[in-house]
Design a protein around this nucleic acid. Structure first.
Length: 261
DNA sequence: AAGCTATCCAACCGCCTGGCT
DNA sequence: GAGCCAGGCGGTTGGATAGCT
């Protein structure tokens, strides 16, 4: 039995979202919370499929998103996490507050991959390209992880980056996972992955503090918000909990200048 | 200025997983 | 246990834009 498509493609709009559609989706979600995505387009008056709405929200409209290029520290963290987790972008994104899996994936494919290749590092294995064959035939994980840390150092040297900011240095928990990562073999690797999968890092961890307060230092350039500043108030709802509903009523869905948004 | 190429990133697609009946 | 459904994930595509000749 074939799987049903996520939505009836007839009468469903595709392609780039308009400001009007964004507005409807934001209004709906802020009013009702995230409920059943399949029902969202109907209830919000959108000619989109639920999947498209979910993607638009998670990748672009969420008020807690941080826009702009990844900082060097974030980039470094992505590299480290990728070395441990592989292409599990959602897991990687979970460790970078305000970043989406799509964003990280794109950044990896367009920037980091090239950078690593340029440096002679295989982005897939995080091993030196010249030795990649030999390296893959080696099953000694310690050797691999040693090279991996060399890779990190090399990168940070060349980048002049804040590598130490990307990695935990003073938290015992963080250092323990790093250690297990350096031993990266079988069980340890598994434990690490489990830890990464299960642990929600506290947002106030200093080493994860990429938020605006540190942006100057880290060189993060905040890009324009999708709504071009017309709804800066949205930022006030960064902690509205995504799932919580009815926190705001419809009357709040107007920007301060009185225009509907 | 025009044409071509490279790059970026939002959006789509298909598959997988987990929850429910 | 089987089937269905919704949500989530990772890979890929395609339009827009920048850069180059």
């Amino acid at each position: 039995m074939g799987r049903q498509p996520c939505c009836d493609k007839q009468g469903v709009k595709r392609g780039p979202w308009t400001a009007e559609e964004d507005e409807k989706l934001i209004s709906f979600i802020l009013t009702h919370g995230r409920c059943c995505w399949r029902a969202v387009p109907k209830l919000a008056g959108l000619l989109r499929c639920g999947k498209s709405c979910r993607l638009r929200w998670t990748n672009y409209l969420r008020p807690d998103l941080k826009r702009g290029l990844l900082s060097t520290a974030e980039e470094q963290l992505v590299i480290d996490l990728h070395a441990k987790l592989g292409n599990r972008w959602s897991k990687i994104a979970a460790k970078l507050p305000g970043r989406t899996d799509n964003e990280i994936k794109n950044h990896w494919n367009t920037h980091i991959k090239k950078k690593l290749i340029k440096m002679g590092i295989d982005p897939a294995t995080h091993q030196p390209l010249a030795n990649s064959k030999a390296a893959t035939s080696q099953s000694t994980d310690t050797a691999e992880s040693a090279k991996s840390s060399e890779t990190r150092e090399e990168l940070s040297m060349k980048e002049g980056s804040h590598t130490d900011m990307a990695l935990p240095t003073d938290s015992s928990e963080q250092s323990s996972w790093l250690e297990s990562g350096n031993n990266a073999g079988g069980q340890d690797q598994e434990q690490l992955v489990n830890w990464l999968s299960e642990t929600d890092l506290p947002m106030d961890e200093p080493w994860l503090n990429f938020t605006s307060s540190n942006d100057d230092v880290l060189g993060i350039v905040e890009g324009p918000l999708p709504w071009d500043g017309a709804a800066d108030w949205l930022l006030d709802y960064q902690d509205f909990g995504m799932c919580s509903s009815n926190l705001i009523d419809n009357s709040t869905l107007h920007s301060s200048d009185g225009s509907n948004f």
